[in-house]
Every structure is written in structure tokens, then in C-alpha cells.
Simulated scan of single mutants.
Amino acid sequence: MASYLDFEKPVAELEARVEDLRALSEKKDSPNIGEELAKLEAKAAKALADLYAALTPWQKTQVARHPQRPHCVDYIAGLIEDFTPLAGDRKFAEDEAILCGLGRFRGQSVAVIGQEKGFDTASRLKHNFGMVKPEGYRKAVRVMELADRFGLPVISFVDTAGAFPGIEAEERGQAEAIARATEAALVQGTPNVATVIGEGGSGGALGIAACNVVLMLEHSIYTVASPEASASILWRDSSRAQDAATSMKITAQDLMKFGIIDGIVAEPVGGAHRDPEATIKSVGDAVASALARFAEFSPEAVRAFRQEKFLGMGRNKV
């Protein structure tokens, strides 16, 4: 069953009428309403297209958090063959908020790292709502180092509201773990490509996104802090999250303009959740194109490219 966001109410009403007419047309001895149905379907499609062509940053935030949006597990299932998960950081524990492993992407051996939020109550608890703990980042470092040793490109899927903020995470060195993961990504001698598939929240996202190429889905967000948290800090009023979302420039379109990301992957009209299969294929095509750019690069050239990219941020574009 489709799940609609608050701002999609006009579209929801039109699509409900379409479904009612469609059900009526399928009944025996029903009147001929094919023409009326076609007109209503066209009206609903236009309303959806018009709505999504002019989304506000806050509306994009809501779309990025949509519960039916494809998750990391969906991208792995759709893009990675023979995926073999790797668990544990070899120091403390396994963290299922971040999935790591080896597999083949369109015939090429790769390492995969991705944050998983979960899709229902049980899986969200299992994956800690995508909020990674120190052991998760240390697991990611282990996989990055393994990929570097064996010459494997790294593909990352970013989808987190932020790193886990609990006291136990702080006791186990959360900040240090994120810093080590960021460092490991920056010094990687093989190409790495990150795609923000939903939320890219703060250092929790950056730990696996300091890559040669950073892509964002059209309606994803990438931010230093959530709009709600930023509103609480700036105005001591979390209800001003919409204002914060606009001021912070967190959309793919804004970040592309500022040179923070390297590409935007188009989503189906109405968001990735409307056609997950098409979205996953589009991401796969974009990742393949990004990796192809570095096919002839030496490890030194890969590192130099990444270093120049990040050191140039804020200098070349305003």
C-alpha cells in the first residue's frame, strides 16, 4: 500500500479516485468509463510531476526519510552479485547499522559499505535505525584496508540520520572511530564512490563518504546536522526545522552548485519509492560510470585526485 507524505495529500486524493474508478471499470456490467479514467490518470500524473518539480528543501527532507524508499539492502541485492558479508571490527563487536562485504559489481570485484536503517520495527531495532556505533566505523576501516590491499574499488551507500550519540558510543571512542574511517577513505589507493541514497547526516555519513566521487539521489539530503537539531541550536526552537532546511542548503541541487558533490542521480517522478527497481538501476549506472573514470589511474593518482578534490572545496565555488 502506498504511503503518502503530508504535502502529497492532493495527489493522494486524485490517485484514490483513480483506484476507485479502476475498480469500478473491472466489475461485470460496469459502464464504459475508460475515457474518464484516462483523463483522471493524466490529471493525477501531472499533479505529481508538478509537485515534485518544485519541492522545498523541507519536503525533500521528508522524501529522503520516506519509509518505503529503497534501503542499502535493496541496493546490495539489486547491484552486487555473490555478496559475502564481513562482520565485526575485531576489537569489540558487530554493528549491524553498517553492512560491509565483498562481491561483484557488473563483473568487477568490489568492496561494499553501506548504512542500513531497517524497514519495519524489528529490522530498525536490529540495525539501530542506521545510527552507526564506533565498532561499525572500525569494521568499515577494516574493509577499506582489505580493499586497498587487494586492489578492490569501494562502493558506499550512505543513509543515516547521524552516528549513534549514546554514552556507550562516546565511551568507546565514537569521534576517533569516525575520524579513522574518514582517514581510511581519504588515503584509499583504489577508487571509492559514495552515493547518498536517503539521509547523509553529519560525520556519521562522512565517515564512509570521503570518496573520489560522491553522488546523491535527486531527493536525498546531505547535512552537517538534521534540520530539527540545527533549528534547536540556532533558534532554540525545533519547530523551525523548515527554516533550517532552507538556510542550510542541504539538497543535492544546492550541494552540486557548491561543488560539494559530483553528481545527481535522477529519481522517478514521485521519488525513489515509486519505482525502486528503476532507481537502483540508475544508481548502478552512475556508479559504473564513476568507477570507469579511474580505470587507468595508479594508486598515487587516485589519492592525488581525491586530495585535490577535497582541498579545493570552498576555494573554487561560492
Rank of each mutant, 00 (worst) to 15 (best):
G204R: 09
A44N: 08
A12R: 15
I155T: 02
P10K: 01
E96A: 13
L40W: 07
S282E: 04
R293A: 05
P276D: 07
V73I: 15
R65D: 12
A288G: 06
D74S: 09
K257S: 14
L5A: 12
I197D: 03
V110A: 01
D89I: 05
K117G: 01
A97N: 11
L291W: 12
G271C: 06
E13W: 00
E218T: 11
V132D: 08
A42W: 03
R104C: 00
V213I: 15
I167L: 11
Y137P: 07
L217T: 11
Q59R: 03
G103H: 07
P191E: 02
L55F: 10
P57R: 10
V269N: 06
A244D: 05
S230A: 14
V269I: 15
G271I: 04
R90F: 10
S282K: 03
V265T: 09
S220M: 07
N212K: 05
F83N: 10
K249T: 01
S247R: 12
P10H: 00
H71I: 11
Q68L: 14
G204F: 12
V187K: 14
A140T: 05
A245Y: 02
D89Y: 05
L125W: 00
V110E: 00
N32G: 00
S25Q: 12
V224A: 15
D82W: 00
G107Y: 08
V110P: 00
F297G: 04
G259D: 09
E116Q: 15
Q59A: 01
Q115G: 12
E170K: 13
A304R: 14
C100W: 06
L146V: 04
G271E: 04
M131H: 08
I221H: 04
F297I: 11
A122E: 02
A44D: 01
I208H: 06
E267Q: 06
A286D: 01
F258K: 13
K257M: 11
T195R: 00
M248Y: 11
K60P: 01
I167N: 13
A169D: 07
D89W: 02
R149K: 14
V214Q: 13
A47H: 07
H219K: 08
D275E: 06
A12E: 14
A266Q: 15
A210P: 02
E170F: 09
T190F: 01
A161H: 10
S123Q: 13
R17K: 12
C211P: 06
L186I: 06
D20W: 05
V318Y: 12
L99Q: 15
V196P: 10
D95N: 15
A44F: 03
G107C: 03
W235P: 03
R90P: 00
A244M: 04
S289Q: 13
I178H: 08
Y137A: 09
E41H: 02
S109K: 14
T61V: 10
L21I: 04
L291I: 12
L99V: 15
L5Q: 12
F305E: 14
T246W: 01
A205K: 09
D262T: 11
V213E: 12
L48G: 01
E218R: 10
K28S: 10
A77M: 12
I76G: 08
L79R: 02
V265G: 07
G151S: 07
A122G: 00
R274S: 09
H219A: 05
D29W: 06
A290Y: 01
A38I: 02
R236I: 08
A12S: 10
S230Y: 15
